[in-house]
């Protein structure tokens, strides 16, 4: 499944994630939600409306509204998970995860190991990322901080089909899973930013689960492999369309999960194309692209016909002005130019 099948049941990512949560809450009564502004009657259903309608189905005992206390939320989630529950904590924007780094990094990630494998922390922390003219404290993409932490799993769904499936897998997972979702991909509002591409996907009626650690080939191609996530993935797909008209065929891969990372799919593609571009909105230095590049160089050096190119958010805090924000995060033009230059440098 590429997540692009044509079908009559097209959902946005937000709706798909809501379905996944509903199904898993129905399936397993240990699953519960805890966070800020998630279930208040007449409220927002979470900062992005993903939980709207859930209190009516499950009641406010399983949709627990909290004070603005990220440490309390994350701490309660870790503690409840250790005692046999399956919490889904919510902190609104991913930028606020820094308020509870201790609970995530020192506690959730390490309990299993410190206990000699006897304690588990099955929680799913949803973390909305992405620039949307809200500036330096409401637009970061902090996923790369967390792939540095042994004991955490990190996923980045970018389409509704996979978002639903991997959310279900994450909820069933016995380890802490951080799910990074891009704000502009929730509904259809981000369409323009994504180069006009349709952001809904066919989500079948039947139940399915998408396991962690399986990349998705979104577009097949022979000249260059592009690995990208979130909004930038769509911009890469839009760039690939443009480049195809010029005779450059891009293979575009959505890694879907960063930890565990499906390197085999990526290696196999690089073996065929000999060129690799890695693109993400998160800043360049120390971003997940650096880790992937190092792996490919270490294990597929002989397949590479050219240096690996990373296209990332620039190493600056996010500015709010549209004119500045667009200069910082990878644009379709920047991606197309970089790929063109890479392919032109024939070796």
């Amino acid at each position: 499944m590429t997540g692009d099948q044509v079908g009559e049941r097209r959902l946005s990512i937000g709706a798909a994630i809501r379905e996944a949560i509903i199904e898993e809450m129905q399936r397993d009564e240990r699953v519960f939600l805890i966070g800020e502004d998630i279930g208040i009657p007449g409220g927002f259903g979470g900062a992005f409306g993903v939980y709207l309608g859930l209190p009516e189905i499950f009641g406010r005992d399983r949709i627990i509204d909290t004070p603005i206390s990220e440490k309390a939320i994350a701490g309660a989630a870790v503690g409840a998970a250790m005692m046999g529950m399956r919490p889904i904590p919510d902190l609104q924007y991913s930028d606020f995860v820094f308020e509870c780094m201790d609970e995530i990094v020192n506690q959730a990630a390490k309990m299993r190991y410190m206990s000699g494998g006897r304690i588990r922390v099955p929680l799913v922390l949803r973390l909305p990322v992405g620039a949307s003219n809200r500036g330096a404290q409401h637009g970061q993409s902090p996923e790369s901080y967390f792939i540095h932490v042994p004991g955490l799993k990190v996923v980045c769904p970018s389409d509704a089909y996979h978002a639903k499936g991997i959310m279900k897998a994450a909820i069933r997972d016995d380890d802490p899973v951080l799910v990074f979702e891009h704000k502009l991909l929730y509904g259809s509002k981000g369409r323009e930013s994504a180069g006009g591409l349709d952001l809904t996907a066919h989500v079948p009626e039947e139940e399915y689960v998408v396991p962690l650690g399986q990349a998705v080939v979104k577009r097949a191609g022979t000249d260059v492999t592009i690995v990208a996530t979130h909004l930038v993935l769509y911009r890469c797909l839009a760039a690939a369309e443009i480049l195809a008209e010029e005779g450059i065929e891009c293979e575009v891969i959505d890694p879907l999960s960063l930890l565990p990372l499906d390197v085999e799919t990526i290696y196999a593609s690089v073996d065929r194309t000999g060129r690799l571009v890695i693109a993400h909105e998160d800043t360049l230095t120390g971003g997940w692209g650096a880790e992937l590049a190092a792996r490919v160089v270490g294990e597929r050096f002989d397949s590479l016909r050219a240096p690996i190119v990373r296209i990332a958010g620039h190493d600056v805090p996010l500015p709010v002005a549209p004119a500045l924000e667009e200069a910082v995060i990878p644009s379709i033009d920047r991606i197309a130019d970089q790929v063109r230059a890479l392919v032109a440098a024939r070796r």
């Binding site: 003219n133 809200r134 500036g135 330096a136 409401h138 500015p319 709010v320 002005a321 549209p322």
Partner: peptide, 16 residues
């Protein structure tokens, strides 16, 4: 407005 003449040069915006 996110303009160059803003009190933060357009980098901060409403929330900053």
């Amino acid at each position: 407005y996110g303009k160059a003449t803003g009190c933060c040069g357009g980098k901060g915006g409403s929330m900053h």
